[in-house]
Simulated assay, not measured.
Amino acid sequence: MTADAADSERKVELALDLLAHLEVEELSIAEAVDRIETVTTNPTLTREILDEAEKRGIVERENGRLRTRRGGTFVRFESQVIQKEGDFECRRCGCGLSTGHFIRFDSGELGPFGSSCIRKVTGRE
Results as ranks from 00 to 15, higher is better:
Glu52Tyr: 00
Asp87Arg: 12
Gly100Thr: 05
Asn63Pro: 00
Glu26Trp: 05
Pro112Glu: 09
Thr38Ala: 13
Ile118Gln: 07
Phe88Gln: 09
Thr41Cys: 01
Phe74Pro: 00
Leu50Asp: 06
Thr99Gln: 11
Ala15Met: 06
Ala53Val: 01
Arg65Cys: 00
Ala6Thr: 10
Ser79Pro: 00
Leu14Glu: 06
Glu125Ala: 12
His21Asn: 15
Leu45Tyr: 09
Leu22Gln: 15
Thr122Tyr: 02
Ala32Glu: 08
His101Gln: 05
Thr38Cys: 15
Gly114Cys: 15
Arg92Leu: 15
Arg10Val: 00
Thr46Leu: 08
Arg119Phe: 02
Leu110His: 10
Gly57Ser: 08
Ala15Asn: 02
Gly71Asn: 13
Phe88Glu: 11
Val12Phe: 02
Glu48Ser: 11
Glu9Gly: 03
Gly100Ala: 08
Gly64Arg: 02
Pro43Asp: 13
Ile103Arg: 11
Thr99Trp: 02
Arg56Val: 06
Val59Gln: 03
Gly94Thr: 12
Thr73Gly: 00
Gly72Tyr: 01
Leu16Val: 03
Asp4Lys: 14
Ile103Asn: 10
Thr41Ala: 10
Val81Pro: 07
Glu26Phe: 04
Glu78Gly: 05
Thr2Leu: 11
Pro43Met: 10
Cys90Asp: 14
Arg65Val: 07
Thr68Asn: 04
Gln83Arg: 14
Arg69Trp: 02
Gln80Lys: 03
Asp4Thr: 13
Arg69Ser: 06
Lys84Glu: 15
Arg47Pro: 00
Thr68Gln: 04
Ser98Val: 11
Ala15Lys: 02
Gly114Ala: 06
Arg70Trp: 00
Arg92Gly: 02
Thr38Gly: 10
Ala53Asn: 00
Glu52His: 01
Arg76Trp: 01
Thr46Trp: 01
Gly64Thr: 05
Ala53Asp: 01
Ile36His: 08
Arg69Lys: 15
Phe88Lys: 10
Ser8Gln: 13
Glu25Met: 05
Arg70Ile: 04
Glu125Ser: 14
Ala30Cys: 01
Ser8Trp: 01
Glu78Pro: 03
Val81Trp: 06
Leu97Pro: 01
Pro43Glu: 14
Gly86Pro: 04
His21Ser: 14
Lys55Ala: 14
Leu45Trp: 11
Arg47Gly: 10
Cys93Thr: 10
Arg10His: 12
